[in-house]
């Protein structure tokens, strides 16, 4: 008989080109790919936040300017897009980003915790505060988004809640101490999240190298600082009476 024959067949099979799953499947199944999803959605949300923060600062030019800006946002893309379509497209993209970011974070975190089933008896502080608070900071930001939408988009929990008058709604809102506290705490959490998140995204997307490292860290800190300061400026100005 020819006992060598099956071996030959196996070798022929093993040398055949391996069919790989589609790029999207490869990404979603691997830890590196899921981090890429987090990085890309994170950058999308970060770009939105920069525009959002700059738009917020229009409050310092008075109610006509601020309300006019809010109205203009709904007319972007006209006449190709209908009224408020641009806003809805943005909302869909952002909602998808938040969902993908959160689902990836949840799945990766579960995996990370399972990878160290026995904790070290000797614990010592690890990494920076921003790095250690990414997970719970992210949860805080997720809860804040819900509150923020109920407050100033659907106006459900806004003390004034008059559609088309965002300036008056914002001022009415931040006259309440609890709204200020919620908002300021969330923006500090945002700063910490961006501080680690921006640099981490660059690392995940492979954009980092030895030469760029310090520039990326500087940009991350600058973004965190500018975003936090820019967002907090609004409630602080209402509290101090600069905006009324």
């Amino acid at each position: 008989m020819y006992p060598a024959l099956p071996t030959v067949c196996v070798m022929a099979l093993a040398t055949r080109t391996v069919r790989r799953p589609s790029p999207l499947a490869t990404l979603w199944r691997s830890t590196v790919g899921k981090k890429t999803v987090m990085a890309v959605t994170g950058v999308i949300m970060l770009l939105f936040l920069v525009v959002h923060m700059l738009g917020n600062l229009k409050i310092f030019f008075g109610s006509t300017d601020f309300n006019g800006y809010a109205h203009w946002l709904r007319t972007i893309g006209e006449p190709a897009l209908h009224y408020s379509w641009f806003l809805w497209i943005t909302r869909v993209v952002l909602a998808a980003s938040v969902a993908l970011h959160a689902v990836s974070a949840y799945q990766l975190s579960r995996r990370d915790l399972a990878a160290r089933p026995t904790a070290y008896a000797h614990r010592r502080p690890r990494a920076s505060y921003a790095t250690r608070t990414m997970r719970w900071g992210g949860v805080i930001l997720g809860l804040f988004i819900v509150w923020h939408l109920l407050d100033l988009t659907t106006l459900t929990v806004n003390p004034r809640g008059e559609a088309g008058h965002p300036y008056q709604n914002v001022v009415a809102d931040f006259r309440n101490w609890y709204a200020d506290v919620v908002y300021i705490v969330a923006m500090l959490a945002l700063g910490l999240h961006v501080r680690h998140g921006f640099w981490s995204a660059a690392q995940t997307l492979g954009a980092n190298n030895a030469r760029r490292d310090s520039a990326l860290k500087f940009t991350a800190n600058a973004l965190a600082l500018v975003l936090t300061a820019g967002f907090i400026a609004v409630p602080v100005s209402v509290m101090t009476g600069v905006v009324s």
Partner: peptide
């Protein structure tokens, strides 16, 4: 194929993911 296979093998062994802590 090296990077795809090695990352798949790494994930398959039950190691955690990178959160860029730098430790």
């Amino acid at each position: 194929s090296r990077v795809l296979d090695m990352v798949a093998a790494m994930d398959g062994e039950g190691f955690g993911g990178c959160t860029n802590t730098g430790e």
